[in-house]
């Protein structure tokens, strides 16, 4: 699945979260995802970008268009070199939060996207990769 097109954006501030939402919206619209799908992808982007800023101490997002057979997908990777997550299983649960949030960012994004993987190591950082297939 060699990416056709790729772009990297910094995710360090609240304004970067807005910029990430807008960039992903643009790509998803260009790829002709339905309005509901666009909304799901942009919402997941907002959640994961905010985690990168709030919990990961900032990082970046890599967006790319990928292909598998006849299917096109929008692939997003959120990466930071923050504190990592000690208990990923717990973090993936609805309502789990260490920051007084809703605890829906990770679990909700997983539901909103077709594929979701998380790699994290305490003291090294976190990498969340998601794809939405058309």
């Amino acid at each position: 699945m060699a990416p056709q097109k790729t772009e990297t954006l910094p995710i360090k501030t609240a304004s970067d979260i807005v910029a990430a939402r807008q960039a992903v919206r643009l790509w998803a619209a260009e790829m002709k995802f339905s309005l509901v799908d666009q909304t799901k992808i942009v919402t997941a982007t907002s959640e994961l970008a905010r985690n990168t800023v709030q919990h990961g101490g900032g990082g970046h997002m890599v967006m790319s268009i990928v292909e598998s057979g006849i299917h096109q997908g929008l692939h997003l990777v959120f990466e930071d070199k923050g504190p990592g997550i000690a208990d990923v299983e717990a973090a993936m649960r609805d309502g789990f939060t260490t920051a007084g949030g809703m605890g829906l960012g990770l679990s909700g994004s997983k539901r909103l996207m077709s594929q979701f993987t998380i790699e994290t190591k305490v003291g090294e950082g976190t990498r969340v990769a998601v794809t939405r297939w058309k």
Binding site: V36, T39, M102, L112
Partner: peptide, 14 residues
């Protein structure tokens, strides 16, 4: 609230 937003909110779990 736009329908697409409402659908997404439910799936998000809010």
């Amino acid at each position: 609230m736009q329908p697409a937003v409402a659908i997404t909110l439910v799936e998000l779990g809010m």
